[in-house]
Amino acid sequence: MTEQTETVPPAHDVARDIVLEARGVSKHFRVRHNGGDLLARRQRAVHAVDDVSLQLRRGTVTALVGESGSGKSTVARLLAQLYPLTGGEIHLAGKAVKAGSGRSFRRYVRQVQLIFQDPFASLNPVHTVRYHLARSLKIHGRAGSGEAELEAGLTALLERVQLTPPQRFLDKFPHELSGGQRQRVAIARALGADPQVLLADEPVSMLDVSIRLGVLNLLKDLKDRLHLAILYITHDIASARYFADTTLVMYAGRIVEGGDSETVTQHPAHPYTQLLIASAPDPDRAVAPEEQQESGSGEPPSLIAPPAGCRFHPRCPRAMERCRTELPPRFDLDDGQWAACWLYADTTVTTEATGTKEATDK
């Protein structure tokens, strides 16, 4: 068993850099309940994710930010193929991925690994660290041909996530580790597949504040050394600025803004992003007076019967009449930033389905 290879980034090619891509992905969950009209029950569904498109590139971190219930974790589970798609496509290395099981699913998860939010819940409490890591290496064919190679592989994984000396941790049970150590074991288990993509679903939200930065720095180091594509899911937009290259903002099942993390977090365009920023003050953020908006109020909408038009309009302090009836497309702004908001209807529209652009004058 050889240590995980540190890859060298190829010459820059935007198309080749895209490892995993979601194209118009949707996920609706049927609502089950007793009583009422049978036809109505069949038609009721939770619109957890609607028409979400994103690209994960080698050697970069993409943050997916939003409040609880916005659909972020559902997106991660769709990309991990834990849920079947209601609509849209997932492409791995430029090829459409078909839902499957058995060998096809195993081939997919060798490339795409999910790190769960709660490391204690994701590790079997009756098994040791050795068991968890050895099982990962064996399932993905990286255990080698003998005990010596397996031990070398286990040691390499623990060293990779900075749990040293490895012999101190191999025979411990999850309850004997701290929260940060458990999450590092979960990351090591994901690395056992030698993946190209890590889907990190709020990987530090269950950890003590004092050790969150260490885990984020570990992921950043892995991204640089192994040239991984990382999807970082979080409700903390401030950490997205620190950790991610690109930030996407999600609200009620839809992505409403995206762009370079520094631009999105320092100069938010969508009223919802402005609300998120206002709820997490940053003393280093320079917000011009004209960018300061009245905070939105109210609760997120029901995803069983989402509002027409822009889903944020019931809470938006700048909502217009067309926001209540027309779903805003994506409007391109400066420096690669974009926002799905009618406030920018005089700019250039990017049609996400085709990638074409057309000028508007509204």
Rank of each mutant, 00 (worst) to 15 (best):
D51Y: 01
R77Q: 11
R57V: 08
R58H: 07
N34V: 15
Q43P: 03
S136V: 06
H132V: 06
N34Y: 14
R32P: 04
G88N: 07
A40W: 01
T60L: 14
T74Y: 05
T86H: 05
D37P: 02
G100S: 09
G94H: 07
F120L: 14
A134G: 14
N34L: 14
A63R: 02
L54S: 12
G88W: 03
H91C: 10
R106N: 09
R44F: 00
G144E: 07
T128V: 09
S73M: 00
A96C: 11
I139V: 15
H47I: 09
H127M: 15
Y83L: 07
E89G: 11
H91W: 09
K98N: 10
I115K: 00
Q111R: 14
L92C: 00
H127L: 13
L85I: 02
R77I: 02
R44M: 10
R77K: 13
V65W: 04
R107D: 15
T86W: 06
L137I: 03
L78H: 01
P125C: 04
L54F: 10
L56D: 04
G144F: 03
K72N: 03
I115E: 00
G87N: 11
G66I: 04
T74Q: 09
I115G: 00
V61F: 13
L82F: 12
R57K: 11
P84N: 15
R30H: 11
K138M: 12
R41E: 08
S145P: 04
E89A: 10
E147F: 15
V129W: 00
H127C: 10
Q43C: 13
Q113F: 00
G94R: 08
G141E: 07
V126Q: 10
K95H: 08
V49A: 09
R106S: 09
A45D: 10
P84C: 14
K138L: 08
Y83Q: 04
T60N: 12
H132E: 02
H127Q: 07
H91N: 12
A48I: 00
G94F: 02
G146F: 04
